[in-house]
Nucleic acid binder design. Structure first.
Length: 275
DNA sequence: GCCCAGGAGAAGG
DNA sequence: CCTTCTCATGGG
């Protein structure tokens, strides 16, 4: 059954900023400006009317999703005050905030985040979305019918661990298919104790940083990808190869909100590149 | 044909 | 510790 949840008087919230700042890959813009996708196995459509956010979602296990969606969209966090703190500390971020003032960090499912960002490596966003979509359709978890389409979440570690990389060929993941299978087997083999992220196949410094930020709520995590490296080089004067210097600057300047600052910078740089 | 994409891993200094 | 090379795939 489809349920509707309304959140009134929501500030610092923009669907395009949230869903197109590179943090998630399963939400797609509809002709009416709303977004359809799924979160934690819940198919949904999200729209906005003024300061009112409307979520139409497929009910899961008979639960009341109000609390779930409030947490998913991080609605209890005051982004206004965070933006003021960041803008005061750094003029570049102050400018970047103007282009993505409605960004929020979604509370994404850890395993989906791990799978997604392993696929993201040396890849581009449109193709990452296609890869995840094909992978989910191929061997993912069925979430239900929504808007006339079957919706699937990414495959569980249990499912992936039993496959061979070649079984994922039609998903077009390239060499990342082997990373996924190996990571799934590592997770299954470790039983109850989840292995350290960096020990997983296909998880290096940048992918770990994204997983911590988007899947484990570590807002201090500051992922440095090609775009952020570009902005740090062009607008802050860092040497392109000085990743550790950039990390230290982010920690010293943005502290507990490094990940939020990074999202403004990422969105800002990509918007500028579109011109 | 080339280069690039939210890099990681292995090899060799 | 560092640098360089390779990895599969699709789009511009």
């Amino acid at each position: 059954m489809i349920k509707e949840y309304i959140f009134e008087n929501v500030k610092d919230f923009d669907l395009r900023h949230i869903f197109e700042c590179g943090q998630c890959f399963r939400w797609n813009r509809q002709p009416d400006g709303s977004y359809s996708g799924q979160a934690w196995g819940r198919p949904a459509n999200v729209s906005m009317d003024g300061s009112r956010v409307r979520v139409r979602a497929l009910e899961k296990n008979g639960e009341n999703g109000e609390r779930f969606w409030r947490e998913y969209f991080d609605l209890d966090r005051d982004y206004g005050s965070i933006k003021r703190i960041l803008a005061e500390k750094d003029p570049v971020v102050a400018e970047a905030i103007k282009s993505g003032e409605g960004i929020r960090i979604l509370h994404q499912e850890p395993w989906e985040t791990i799978v997604s960002f392993i696929i993201s490596s040396n890849n581009n966003i449109p193709r990452i979305k296609g890869c995840i979509e094909r992978l989910a359709g191929l061997c993912g978890t069925f979430c239900g019918e929504f808007e006339g389409k079957a919706v699937y979440n990414v495959p569980t570690a249990e499912v992936l661990a039993k496959l061979e990389p070649g079984d994922l060929a039609t998903a077009g993941l390239g060499y990342r298919a082997a990373y996924l299978v190996k990571t799934a087997r590592q997770v299954i083999a470790s039983g109850d104790s989840f292995p350290p992220l960096r020990s997983l196949a296909g998880v290096g410094p940048k992918v770990e940083s994204c997983i911590r930020l988007f899947g484990f709520g570590d807002l201090s995590s500051f992922p440095i990808d090609v775009w952020v490296r570009r902005v740090m080089s062009e607008l802050y004067g860092f040497d392109e190869g000085d990743i550790s210097g950039m990390q230290k600057f982010a920690a010293d300047t943005f502290g507990p909100y490094g990940g939020i600052a990074q999202q403004y910078l990422f969105y800002y740089m990509r918007e500028a590149a579109k011109q």
